[in-house]
Design a protein around this nucleic acid. Structure first.
Length: 767
DNA sequence: GGGTCCCCGTTTTTT
DNA sequence: ACGGGGACCC
């Protein structure tokens, strides 16, 4: 990884004749102001659909076109590779050609690039490897093992999350507060974190958090190094600033301190990654952190109808912690306000999928391409019922997100082989594939290797060589290990002479890894073989093995092949930054959206859910359809729920509300639509609806001094409390059955056809 | 060293 | 309902 750049000070280009800037004419006044405010700290608050990316790319192009800095003196950071790629392409388009030397990339890729130059200052070598989540978990497990933790209470993923959050906040093991370190892992949190960091160093490895954390550590301890970078980057630009964590904020602040030309673009209302360490406070505090900052608001929305904007604005206005923006339609004088946002109540998740399916078919007949429609869900399990429905209807769809290519087990295995060939001392890669396929090297042998490696401070590969000279292993295991090491040496010998693609094929074949899947008769095996072929194809796009491995570490290629028509299915998180003509937002129910886990976190959790709702609504250009189901199967059990509070928060003038008959006030009566208001009916205390969700809903309505309309059939609901063990009952979905047991408001019923189920008593009637 | 059974957890997931 | 992982047994 050699960077062909020099940290020696370079003067900015001479301010000479400027090229004309026709791109400025394509901007509205606020956008133009944001582009032309080149000097000093600038905060661009860009609401959804207000041309954020255009501003960012035009500003970057403008900087270079105005000769304010050489491209190599400009740093532009994004969160995703996709955003970085897009920005690079658009800047090239604006300037009529690719720009060389520009530092444009993700936070992590940029930090990695810097860190490789100074790795030794934090005890690493420049060719350190970057661990992903899976490697990280394995390593933590190893480190935690000798500490005799209760791994039920402190599984490695919980520990990983704790370390990640510390790193997000820019905290090294030495900087963790005592109290905080102690309430992780039964008081051993700090010790474990330090041990993990030490182990990483021994392995010459970093996790994602380290890329930034190590940079900060270096900048703080070595003012000369920091000074070089500060002088180099005359301008710094940041995308999606609302998602920056504290470490990223510190990194930026340190880098921009010299020239103070830091421009951040973001939208506090779209901050949805708090759980991953994003700190909305960064953007809220920008003006205090960077005195004299220019603040520019982009509020002209070019995407959505007035009604969609009205609904979204009305919703987000319920949040307290925000800077405050109001989205206006760019075409404010237009007569057409657009269709109201539709809110529909349905019986259950199947009905919801049917309804959405019908709408999609109708919209398609009306001329909307399927790829212009999206179903945005809160949690990924929700996609299932829609997939089933779309399959039934024969409508093509694509699920965006899900397991990424490089996260697949077979790809990770193959990559581990390549890593181990490339870096003999990569212990995690060694661990992963030493007995895959089975070579007869089980736990006992591996433990011996680990023990030796640990005791002598050497890598597993080295330990393996030593152990062969002893009689520590049984002859069988020793032979297997010797053969394996010999193979590795053979492959390594070919690194120079052989082309890396051919080498990869050789390794995968000769190791027996491919054969392992050829022999495998499970239904997944053919797909896995296909993926391995794809991996080899991907390898061909890189110059050498090392370049490929760096790509694997830092780039998650989750790009979907666009082009083909199909409905888009994804989570709300996955939809950020995208837009569609029509957006379906199912599952707006208390407990699911807002999610119970967020509600448990209190006000901050709730506000983040609300921002997520806002993100969802603002994805829609023309139409948005919300829905909520009264019943839903969650983890196998039926659950009943009430509409999300967010539905009640939508301003009436932009919304049309309908619900299937009698949904929240008894059920089973046919015909027509219920009074729309009945959707919000909340029953009297003590009724069978006395569930946590109901209690929250009552508290919510009470706090707002809203009297929810009385349910119409309270008498009948109340009667359900009288259903006793032994009664014969009728359920809409499961038919008739006999009550075997009662647990609070849940009945254990043996249905004639549907078998034994647990259901809420409010959903059955005496038969 | 390898297979089987049971129990737990199950929101979101850029790098 | 369901999968992954750990404990337990052969």
């Amino acid at each position: 990884m050699s960077d062909p750049f020099d940290l020696a000070e370079v003067a900015p280009p001479p301010a000479g004749a400027l090229a004309p800037a026709p791109y400025l004419n394509a901007l509205n006044p606020e956008q133009r102001a944001a582009v032309e405010a080149l000097d000093g700290p600038v905060l661009v608050l860009a609401g959804a659909g207000t041309g954020k990316t255009r501003v960012l790319t035009t500003r970057l192009a403008h900087l270079i076109n105005m000769r304010r800095a050489w491209p190599s003196q400009v740093l532009a950071v994004t969160f995703t590779n996709k955003a970085a790629r897009e920005m690079r392409e658009r800047v090239a388009a604006l300037l009529g050609g690719a720009v060389d030397g520009l530092w444009l990339g993700t936070f992590h890729a940029t930090a990695a690039r810097m860190l490789r130059r100074h790795a030794e200052l934090v005890g690493l070598k420049p060719d350190f490897s970057i661990l992903d989540q899976d490697d990280q978990l394995r390593l933590i497990k190893q480190v935690a093992e000798p500490m005799h933790l209760d791994d039920k209470r402190w599984p490695s993923r919980v520990l990983a999350a704790a370390f990640d959050r510390w790193k997000d906040r820019g905290l090294t093991p030495e900087q963790i507060g005592r109290a905080e370190a102690e309430h992780v892992a039964d008081g051993k949190g700090g010790e474990l974190y330090a041990a993990y960091q030490d182990r990483l160093r021994v392995l010459n490895a970093c996790d994602f958090g380290d890329l930034l954390l190590h940079c900060i550590t270096i900048f703080r301890a070595h003012p000369d190094v920091l000074g070089q970078w500060q002088r180099k980057f005359r301008y710094v630009l940041v995308d999606e600033y609302q998602d920056a964590n504290v470490a990223q904020y510190l990194w930026l602040r340190l880098l921009a301190q010299q020239h103070k030309n830091l421009c951040v673009v973001g939208d506090d209302d779209q901050s949805i990654y708090r759980w991953r360490g994003a700190e909305v406070g960064n953007i809220l505090r920008f003006e205090q952190d960077f005195p004299g900052a220019t603040v520019i608001r982009l509020e002209r929305n070019y995407r959505s109808t007035a009604r969609i904007l009205g609904a979204a604005s009305g919703l987000i206005a319920h949040n307290r912690g925000r800077l405050g923006k109001t989205l206006r339609p760019a075409d404010a004088g237009a007569n057409d306000q657009g269709a109201p946002v539709e809110v529909r109540g349905v019986w259950d998740d199947e009905a919801e999928a049917r309804l959405v399916g019908e709408d999609i078919e109708q919209l398609q007949r009306d001329g909307h391409p399927l790829k212009e429609m999206a179903i945005l869900v809160r949690a990924s399990f929700q996609t299932r019922s829609f997939e089933e429905r779309l399959l039934t209807l024969g409508l093509p769809y694509r699920v965006i997100g899900g397991t990424r290519f490089y996260d697949r087990a077979e790809i990770r295995d193959a990559v581990a082989y390549l890593r181990l060939v490339n870096q003999p001392d990569h212990d995690l890669a060694f661990d992963r594939i030493v007995n895959l396929p089975r070579r007869g090297l089980g736990d006992t042998s591996l433990q011996a290797l680990h023990r030796i490696a640990r005791a002598q401070g050497i890598s597993l590969t080295q330990a393996a060589r030593r152990v062969l000279e002893t009689d520590e292993l049984r002859p069988q295991a020793r032979r297997a290990l010797r053969d394996f090491l010999a193979q590795l040496d053979l492959w390594r010998g070919k690194l120079v002479e052989m082309n890396h693609v051919a080498l990869a094929e050789t390794v995968l074949e000769e190791s027996g890894y491919v054969d392992m899947w050829r022999v495998d008769k499970s239904p997944e095996a053919p797909g896995k073989l296909e993926n391995l072929k794809e991996l080899v194809r991907a390898l061909a796009e890189f110059e050498n093995l090392a370049g490929f491995l760096e790509h694997v570490s830092l780039v998650s290629d989750n790009e979907q092949q666009a082009g083909e028509d199909g409905v888009n299915l994804m989570t709300l998180h996955g939809a950020k930054g995208l837009e569609f003509d029509v957006v379906f937002l199912p599952g707006w129910e208390e407990g699911l959206f807002p999610h119970q886990r967020s509600l448990d976190e209190g006000e901050a959790g709730l506000e983040e859910e609300r921002r997520l709702a806002y993100v969802g609504l603002t994805r829609a250009r023309q139409r948005a359809y919300l829905s909520h189901a009264a019943n839903r199967r969650v983890h196998g059990a039926w659950q009943s729920s009430i509409p999300s509070r967010f539905i009640a928060e939508l301003p009436d003038e932009h919304v049309a509300r309908t619900a299937d008959s009698g949904l929240y006030a008894g059920h089973g009566r046919g015909g027509g639509l219920a009074d729309p208001e009945s959707v919000f009916a909340v029953p009297a205390p003590g009724s069978t609806w006395d569930t946590p969700g109901q209690r929250r809903a009552r508290a919510f309505f009470a706090a707002r001094n809203v009297t929810p309309p009385a349910p119409r059939e309270n008498a009948r609901l109340a009667a359900n409390a009288a259903i006793a063990v032994g009664d014969r009952v009728f359920h809409q979905k499961f038919g008739t059955g006999r009550v075997l047991d009662r647990d609070g408001d849940k009945l254990d019923i043996d249905f004639q056809h549907a078998g034994r189920k647990k259901v809420f008593d409010s959903f059955v009637t005496k038969a």
